[in-house]
């Protein structure tokens, strides 16, 4: 889902770049406010830092998807669920910056689009999908269903956003890109949802206090 350089045209990568910059700017302001002017909550800084490394490491896990292909875990909803939607967005942002610069996974001009797809749609929106679902699914078992659905949507919506950007750029026609991207990622999304549920379940069993960290 990482768009390389050259796949997006000027209007698309510039506009997604500006949108992402504005969103990140807002997130940074809110997180700074949560840390406080006096650094009352400065503990958030190292925790957010190692959590970036955590999501990065968690993304190394490949799992098989039908048809011989494999997908990997994204962790957008998981990060937002544990540390809050804005933190999730910033974690995914830093992960994507490192992936782009060190591993050449995703292009530099496409960074804004990739951050929008996976950070904003995948993590931030994914979190609010969970929040809305949790209103209708209040019980502990039902909550797990809400986590699964949010995890699935986060992947499928991020893939759809990616397809839309490629289509706006004239790189592929929407008729082909949208069903192809959404189709493949509908399968990967099942993996994402299941893993997120298992992780949340494990933490609830072993260290339930970690589910109630300060969320930003």
């Amino acid at each position: 889902m990482h768009i390389p350089d050259g796949f997006l045209d000027l209007k698309t990568w510039v506009s997604t770049g500006i949108i992402s910059a504005v969103i990140i700017g807002g997130a940074v302001r809110k997180v700074n406010k949560a840390i406080g002017a006096e650094g009352d909550n400065e503990k958030i800084i190292p925790v957010m830092g190692v959590m970036g490394a955590f999501v990065f490491a968690a993304q190394m896990f490949n799992f098989p998807v039908a048809g011989g292909t494999s997908g990997h875990f994204m962790g957008g909803v998981l990060a937002a669920l544990l540390l809050g939607p804005l933190t999730g967005l910033l974690i995914l942002t830093t992960v994507l910056i490192v992936q782009c610069l060190i591993f050449q996974d995703g292009g530099l001009t496409a960074l804004g689009a990739n951050i929008f797809n996976m950070g904003f749609v995948g993590s931030y929106l994914g979190y609010y999908i969970y929040k809305i679902l949790a209103i209708f699914l209040p019980g502990p078992k039902q909550k797990m269903a809400a986590i699964f659905i949010a995890g699935w949507f986060s992947i499928v919506l991020a893939a759809a956003a990616c397809a839309l950007e490629l289509a706006f750029s004239g790189t592929v026609s929407l008729k082909i890109a949208l069903p192809a991207m959404a189709g493949v990622h509908a399968l990967i999304g099942v993996g994402e949802g299941l893993i997120t549920v298992v992780v949340a379940g494990l933490i609830a069993k072993v260290r339930p206090d970690l589910l109630n960290l300060q969320k930003v």
Binding site: F54, F61, V199, L210
Partner: peptide
């Protein structure tokens, strides 16, 4: 994989 990631977290 989920258990490993949870443990890692």
């Amino acid at each position: 994989v989920g258990n490993i990631i949870g443990l890692l977290f």
